[in-house]
Protein backbone atom coordinates (compact mmCIF):
# COMPACT_ATOMS: atom_id res chain seq x y z
CA UNK A 1 0.00 0.00 0.00
CA UNK A 2 1.35 3.42 -0.96
CA UNK A 3 1.42 5.72 2.08
CA UNK A 4 -0.68 8.85 1.74
CA UNK A 5 1.29 12.11 1.41
CA UNK A 6 1.87 14.04 4.61
CA UNK A 7 2.82 17.17 2.72
CA UNK A 8 1.04 18.37 -0.42
CA UNK A 9 1.51 21.51 -2.45
CA UNK A 10 -1.08 22.36 -5.11
CA UNK A 11 -0.15 24.93 -7.78
CA UNK A 12 1.82 27.07 -5.35
CA UNK A 13 2.71 30.50 -6.65
CA UNK A 14 4.38 33.41 -4.92
CA UNK A 15 4.59 36.74 -6.67
CA UNK A 16 6.46 39.79 -5.36
CA UNK A 17 5.87 43.29 -6.68
CA UNK A 18 3.55 44.29 -9.47
CA UNK A 19 3.59 45.62 -13.01
CA UNK A 20 7.09 45.87 -14.47
CA UNK A 21 8.58 44.91 -11.08
CA UNK A 22 6.53 41.75 -10.81
CA UNK A 23 8.66 38.70 -9.97
CA UNK A 24 7.39 35.14 -9.62
CA UNK A 25 9.60 33.62 -6.93
CA UNK A 26 7.65 30.36 -7.09
CA UNK A 27 5.56 29.53 -10.14
CA UNK A 28 2.83 26.90 -10.09
CA UNK A 29 4.65 24.27 -8.04
CA UNK A 30 2.80 21.07 -7.15
CA UNK A 31 4.48 18.31 -5.19
CA UNK A 32 3.99 15.86 -2.34
CA UNK A 33 6.07 14.06 0.27
CA UNK A 34 4.87 10.84 1.90
CA UNK A 35 5.59 9.34 5.29
CA UNK A 36 9.08 7.82 5.48
CA UNK A 37 10.18 9.61 2.31
CA UNK A 38 13.20 11.89 1.88
CA UNK A 39 12.77 14.43 -0.89
CA UNK A 40 15.52 16.76 -1.95
CA UNK A 41 14.87 20.06 -3.72
CA UNK A 42 17.89 21.33 -5.60
CA UNK A 43 18.38 24.26 -7.85
CA UNK A 44 20.63 27.23 -8.51
CA UNK A 45 20.80 30.19 -6.16
CA UNK A 46 17.76 32.44 -6.51
CA UNK A 47 15.64 29.67 -7.96
CA UNK A 48 12.96 30.09 -5.23
CA UNK A 49 13.92 27.20 -2.95
CA UNK A 50 13.70 29.20 0.29
CA UNK A 51 10.45 30.87 -0.75
CA UNK A 52 8.97 27.45 -1.49
CA UNK A 53 10.20 26.07 1.83
CA UNK A 54 8.75 29.10 3.68
CA UNK A 55 5.33 28.49 2.14
CA UNK A 56 5.48 24.76 2.87
CA UNK A 57 6.44 25.61 6.46
CA UNK A 58 3.43 27.92 7.01
CA UNK A 59 5.77 30.89 7.36
CA UNK A 60 4.75 32.63 4.15
CA UNK A 61 1.34 32.91 2.57
CA UNK A 62 1.26 31.92 -1.12
CA UNK A 63 -0.15 34.32 -3.69
CA UNK A 64 -2.16 31.41 -5.02
CA UNK A 65 -2.32 27.68 -4.56
CA UNK A 66 -2.64 25.61 -1.43
CA UNK A 67 -0.48 23.73 1.07
CA UNK A 68 -1.82 20.70 2.91
CA UNK A 69 0.03 19.43 5.98
CA UNK A 70 -1.01 16.12 7.56
CA UNK A 71 -4.51 16.56 6.19
CA UNK A 72 -4.84 20.22 7.24
CA UNK A 73 -5.26 22.78 4.47
CA UNK A 74 -3.37 25.91 5.52
CA UNK A 75 -5.58 28.15 3.39
CA UNK A 76 -8.56 27.23 5.53
CA UNK A 77 -6.81 28.46 8.70
CA UNK A 78 -6.65 31.99 10.00
CA UNK A 79 -3.21 33.52 10.54
CA UNK A 80 -3.57 33.04 14.29
CA UNK A 81 -3.85 29.24 13.84
CA UNK A 82 -0.65 28.88 11.80
CA UNK A 83 1.80 29.02 14.76
CA UNK A 84 0.11 25.96 16.27
CA UNK A 85 0.57 24.10 12.95
CA UNK A 86 4.24 25.01 12.90
CA UNK A 87 4.65 23.97 16.53
CA UNK A 88 3.06 20.53 16.25
CA UNK A 89 3.15 19.45 12.61
CA UNK A 90 6.52 20.72 11.37
CA UNK A 91 10.09 20.40 12.58
CA UNK A 92 12.54 22.94 11.18
CA UNK A 93 16.25 22.44 10.61
CA UNK A 94 18.28 25.41 9.39
CA UNK A 95 21.65 25.88 7.78
CA UNK A 96 22.65 28.35 10.51
CA UNK A 97 21.51 25.95 13.29
CA UNK A 98 19.52 28.77 14.91
CA UNK A 99 20.00 27.66 18.49
CA UNK A 100 19.20 29.99 21.37
CA UNK A 101 22.54 31.15 22.71
CA UNK A 102 21.49 31.57 26.35
CA UNK A 103 20.02 28.07 26.68
CA UNK A 104 21.83 24.78 27.22
CA UNK A 105 21.62 21.85 24.80
CA UNK A 106 18.78 20.25 26.77
CA UNK A 107 16.90 23.55 27.14
CA UNK A 108 17.22 24.24 23.41
CA UNK A 109 15.81 20.82 22.61
CA UNK A 110 12.92 21.30 25.03
CA UNK A 111 12.23 24.87 23.89
CA UNK A 112 9.35 24.06 21.46
CA UNK A 113 7.93 21.45 23.85
CA UNK A 114 6.03 24.10 25.84
CA UNK A 115 3.86 24.55 22.75
CA UNK A 116 2.86 20.89 22.60
CA UNK A 117 0.34 18.95 24.65
CA UNK A 118 1.80 18.08 28.06
CA UNK A 119 4.41 20.81 27.86
CA UNK A 120 8.04 20.51 28.90
CA UNK A 121 7.35 18.00 31.70
CA UNK A 122 5.86 15.49 29.28
CA UNK A 123 8.70 15.97 26.79
CA UNK A 124 11.59 15.60 29.22
CA UNK A 125 11.86 11.84 28.79
CA UNK A 126 11.69 12.18 25.01
CA UNK A 127 14.42 14.82 25.13
CA UNK A 128 16.60 12.43 27.12
CA UNK A 129 16.10 9.74 24.48
CA UNK A 130 16.94 12.15 21.66
CA UNK A 131 20.05 13.36 23.49
CA UNK A 132 21.25 9.80 23.88
CA UNK A 133 20.34 8.81 20.35
CA UNK A 134 22.10 11.79 18.79
CA UNK A 135 25.23 11.32 20.91
CA UNK A 136 24.79 14.50 22.91
CA UNK A 137 24.68 13.01 26.41
CA UNK A 138 28.06 14.51 27.37
CA UNK A 139 26.96 17.95 26.08
CA UNK A 140 23.56 18.08 27.80
CA UNK A 141 24.36 21.20 29.87
CA UNK A 142 26.67 22.86 27.35
CA UNK A 143 25.86 26.22 25.77
CA UNK A 144 25.71 26.42 21.95
CA UNK A 145 28.85 28.54 21.68
CA UNK A 146 30.90 25.62 23.05
CA UNK A 147 29.58 23.10 20.50
CA UNK A 148 31.06 22.05 17.18
CA UNK A 149 29.05 22.60 13.99
CA UNK A 150 28.03 18.94 13.86
CA UNK A 151 26.91 18.99 17.49
CA UNK A 152 24.90 22.16 16.90
CA UNK A 153 23.10 20.61 13.97
CA UNK A 154 22.35 17.47 15.99
CA UNK A 155 20.84 19.67 18.72
CA UNK A 156 18.76 21.41 16.03
CA UNK A 157 17.59 18.01 14.77
CA UNK A 158 16.61 16.95 18.29
CA UNK A 159 14.72 20.22 18.70
CA UNK A 160 12.93 19.62 15.41
CA UNK A 161 11.87 16.18 16.63
CA UNK A 162 10.87 16.98 20.21
CA UNK A 163 7.19 17.57 19.39
CA UNK A 164 7.13 14.49 17.16
CA UNK A 165 6.03 16.36 14.03
CA UNK A 166 5.09 14.27 10.99
CA UNK A 167 7.06 16.58 8.67
CA UNK A 168 10.65 17.83 8.84
CA UNK A 169 11.70 20.76 6.66
CA UNK A 170 15.44 21.24 6.36
CA UNK A 171 17.14 24.20 4.76
CA UNK A 172 20.72 23.40 3.75
CA UNK A 173 21.22 21.19 6.83
CA UNK A 174 24.79 20.33 5.86
CA UNK A 175 25.68 23.74 4.45
CA UNK A 176 27.86 24.79 7.39
CA UNK A 177 29.29 21.39 8.18
CA UNK A 178 32.48 19.68 7.14
CA UNK A 179 32.31 16.49 5.12
CA UNK A 180 32.31 14.11 8.07
CA UNK A 181 29.72 16.03 10.14
CA UNK A 182 27.54 16.51 7.08
CA UNK A 183 27.56 12.81 6.38
CA UNK A 184 26.74 12.06 10.01
CA UNK A 185 23.78 14.49 9.99
CA UNK A 186 22.46 13.01 6.76
CA UNK A 187 22.52 9.51 8.18
CA UNK A 188 20.65 10.65 11.29
CA UNK A 189 17.94 12.22 9.14
CA UNK A 190 17.83 9.16 6.92
CA UNK A 191 17.22 6.95 9.96
CA UNK A 192 14.52 9.27 11.28
CA UNK A 193 12.60 9.06 8.00
CA UNK A 194 12.97 5.29 7.74
CA UNK A 195 12.48 4.32 11.40
CA UNK A 196 9.85 6.85 12.42
CA UNK A 197 7.98 7.32 9.15
CA UNK A 198 8.42 11.06 9.02
CA UNK A 199 8.28 12.97 5.75
CA UNK A 200 11.53 14.88 5.25
CA UNK A 201 11.98 17.63 2.69
CA UNK A 202 15.45 19.08 2.09
CA UNK A 203 16.54 22.13 0.25
CA UNK A 204 20.23 21.87 -0.52
CA UNK A 205 23.11 22.39 -2.89
CA UNK A 206 24.95 19.50 -1.32
CA UNK A 207 25.23 16.61 -3.80
CA UNK A 208 25.99 14.18 -0.92
CA UNK A 209 22.34 14.39 0.02
CA UNK A 210 21.39 12.96 -3.36
CA UNK A 211 22.78 9.63 -2.20
CA UNK A 212 20.27 9.33 0.65
CA UNK A 213 17.27 11.10 -0.99
CA UNK A 214 14.40 9.05 -2.38
CA UNK A 215 13.58 11.72 -4.94
CA UNK A 216 15.32 14.82 -6.21
CA UNK A 217 13.26 17.75 -7.49
CA UNK A 218 14.90 20.43 -9.58
CA UNK A 219 13.68 23.99 -9.03
CA UNK A 220 14.67 26.60 -11.55
CA UNK A 221 13.22 30.10 -12.02
CA UNK A 222 10.58 29.24 -9.44
CA UNK A 223 9.25 26.19 -11.25
CA UNK A 224 9.91 22.48 -10.95
CA UNK A 225 11.62 21.22 -14.07
CA UNK A 226 13.21 18.05 -15.33
CA UNK A 227 16.72 17.87 -14.18
CA UNK A 228 19.06 17.64 -17.11
CA UNK A 229 22.12 15.51 -16.47
CA UNK A 230 24.14 17.59 -18.92
CA UNK A 231 23.70 20.52 -16.52
CA UNK A 232 26.07 18.82 -14.07
CA UNK A 233 29.67 19.77 -13.82
CA UNK A 234 31.41 17.84 -11.10
CA UNK A 235 34.56 19.17 -9.51
CA UNK A 236 36.40 18.48 -6.23
CA UNK A 237 36.24 20.77 -3.23
CA UNK A 238 39.96 21.70 -2.81
CA UNK A 239 39.69 21.51 0.99
CA UNK A 240 37.71 18.38 1.84
CA UNK A 241 38.02 16.70 -1.57
CA UNK A 242 34.27 16.19 -1.82
CA UNK A 243 32.47 16.09 -5.16
CA UNK A 244 30.78 19.45 -5.88
CA UNK A 245 28.41 20.31 -8.75
CA UNK A 246 29.61 23.65 -10.14
CA UNK A 247 26.12 24.27 -11.58
CA UNK A 248 24.33 24.11 -8.25
CA UNK A 249 27.12 25.10 -5.85
CA UNK A 250 26.62 28.38 -3.99
CA UNK A 251 30.06 28.85 -2.44
CA UNK A 252 32.75 30.03 -4.80
CA UNK A 253 36.09 31.80 -4.64
CA UNK A 254 38.54 33.00 -7.26
CA UNK A 255 42.16 31.96 -6.84
CA UNK A 256 44.96 32.75 -9.30
CA UNK A 257 42.49 33.22 -12.13
CA UNK A 258 40.55 30.04 -11.38
CA UNK A 259 36.97 29.85 -10.14
CA UNK A 260 36.83 27.32 -7.30
CA UNK A 261 33.62 25.70 -5.97
CA UNK A 262 33.31 24.60 -2.35
CA UNK A 263 30.89 22.27 -0.63
CA UNK A 264 30.31 24.70 2.26
CA UNK A 265 31.17 28.06 3.73
CA UNK A 266 33.32 26.28 6.27
CA UNK A 267 35.56 24.80 3.56
CA UNK A 268 35.79 28.21 1.88
CA UNK A 269 36.92 29.78 5.16
CA UNK A 270 39.54 27.10 5.66
CA UNK A 271 40.78 27.67 2.13
CA UNK A 272 40.96 31.43 2.61
CA UNK A 273 42.87 30.95 5.86
CA UNK A 274 45.66 29.03 4.10
CA UNK A 275 45.19 28.96 0.29
CA UNK A 276 48.73 27.80 -0.46
CA UNK A 277 48.20 24.62 1.54
CA UNK A 278 45.21 23.65 -0.59
CA UNK A 279 46.50 25.09 -3.87
CA UNK A 280 48.78 22.11 -4.19
CA UNK A 281 45.75 19.94 -4.76
CA UNK A 282 44.63 22.09 -7.71
CA UNK A 283 46.45 20.28 -10.45
Amino acid sequence: MVPSPLLNAFHLTKVYGSGQARVSAVDDVSMSVSAGELVLIMGPSGSGKTTLLSMLGALLTPTSGEVEIDGVRLGSLTASKLPAVRATKIGFIFQGFNLLEALTVEENILFPARLARGGVAAARGRAGDLIDRLGLAHRRTALPRTLSGGEKQRVAIARALINQPPIILADEPTGNLDSESGQEVMMVLHDIARDEGRAILFVSHDPRIEDVADRVLWLEDGALRDRRQDRHSWVRDPVCGMRVDEVTASVFAEYEGRNLAFCSQRCLERFQADPERYAAKLT
Binding site: L59, R86, A87, T88, N98
Partner: peptide, 13 residues
Protein backbone atom coordinates in the same frame (compact mmCIF):
# COMPACT_ATOMS: atom_id res chain seq x y z
CA UNK B 1 15.97 39.58 16.69
CA UNK B 2 17.11 36.37 15.06
CA UNK B 3 16.35 34.28 18.14
CA UNK B 4 12.91 35.84 18.47
CA UNK B 5 12.31 35.11 14.78
CA UNK B 6 13.36 31.50 15.46
CA UNK B 7 10.82 31.33 18.28
CA UNK B 8 8.18 32.68 15.91
CA UNK B 9 9.14 30.16 13.24
CA UNK B 10 8.96 27.33 15.78
CA UNK B 11 5.37 28.26 16.57
CA UNK B 12 5.52 30.83 19.35
CA UNK B 13 2.87 33.51 18.99
Amino acid sequence: QRELAIAKALGFR
